[in-house]
């Protein structure tokens, strides 16, 4: 590879992509930052705009609903992601062997990951309906009382978490399964022959070797969970009350409910900074251009 492509300039090949990136990524980010320093109402005629510097950020810090949405967002991440990692790891360890139909099962288990997020939110909303929802039908058959799941703040919050776990643990499974398959079998066999029991093998051999993959899965899930919107939006619309108004939903409400584009932009910048921190960590630690290039096209 080294000598390849010494001559010529890459610029003509990069310009179109850079133009698009500038138009729909860099410029909007800069623009968001500018808007976040204004008292900027949404109205179409462009109502009164006032420069207020850090005013929106100060207002945010004093806004109880902002802290509430942040708390709900963090709770969501801290509850859903560890469970997804555990389930994904357990399933990867269990299914990492050959049995009849194994391949088919592994393929089908991934389908929820590719379920349209909107449809997933709607389907869960359906299953949790009173009277005709599947969950209530099941509970009624057991003699339990009927519950309006999405009408209760605690149950609704639990429901959006369960929906996410259902949809995304197979994603973790997919990554960890591939990671496990990448561990040379002779290492595992050697440990087995040396008489290490399963627990020893898991903690002294498998988990250390799998660590980079686990970290990648964790960071990808955090980055993804930080921006969750559509599933929750169609499932609960942030309600009842503010009980499922996660960070993105509150940003949406600020901009298009309260028509405060400046405040929404301040929230957008806040979320952007956090996401960049995680994304850069992921890229630094686990995604190397060299490795990617060595791997070539066929895997």
């Amino acid at each position: 590879m080294k000598g390849a492509g010494g001559q010529g300039s890459p610029v003509p090949f990069l310009v179109p992509a850079l133009l698009i990136v500038f138009a729909v990524l860099i410029f909007p980010i800069v623009f968001s930052f500018v808007v976040s320093m204004f008292d900027w109402p949404l109205s179409a005629g462009g109502g009164e705009r006032h420069f207020i510097g850090a005013g929106n950020y100060v207002d945010l810090v004093q806004d109880k609903e902002f802290w509430n949405s942040l708390k709900l967002q963090l709770g969501f991440i801290f509850i859903a992601i560890p469970l997804e990692l555990l389930l994904g790891l357990a399933a990867a360890l269990l299914l990492n062997r050959e049995f009849n139909g194994g391949r088919v099962i592994r393929a089908l288990i991934l389908l929820p990951v590719f379920f349209l997020p909107v449809v997933s939110g709607m389907t869960w909303r359906f299953m949790l309906q009173p009277r005709y929802g599947a969950l209530n039908n099941f509970l009624l058959a057991l003699g339990a009382p009927e519950i309006t799941w999405l009408g209760d703040p605690t149950f609704a919050y639990a429901a959006i978490i369960v929906q996410d776990i259902w949809r995304m643990w197979p994603f973790v499974f997919m990554l960890l399964y591939a990671g496990l398959a990448g561990i040379p079998t002779d290492i595992l066999e050697a440990a087995e022959i040396d008489g290490a029991n399963f627990r020893r093998r898991l903690f002294s051999v498998i988990l250390p070797l799998l660590y980079p993959t686990i970290l990648t899965a964790l960071l990808l899930r955090i980055i993804d969970a930080l921006r969750i919107f559509s599933e929750v939006y169609v499932m609960t619309e942030g309600g009842p009350g503010m009980s499922t108004t996660l960070f993105s939903l509150y940003t949406h409400r600020q901009a298009f409910g309260y028509m405060k584009v400046g405040m929404a932009s301040a929230m957008a910048i806040f979320l952007l900074v956090i996401s960049i921190v995680f994304a850069v960590t992921l890229v630094r630690k686990n995604m190397s251009l060299e490795k990617l290039e060595e791997r070539g096209g066929d895997r």
Partner: peptide, 19 residues
């Protein structure tokens, strides 16, 4: 480019709407 792929849509959409 990789970091750009991971930015939340919500961070961009308000600005895109105004633009």
């Amino acid at each position: 480019f990789l970091v750009f792929r991971m930015l939340p849509q919500m961070s961009l959409v308000v600005a895109l709407y105004l633009m």
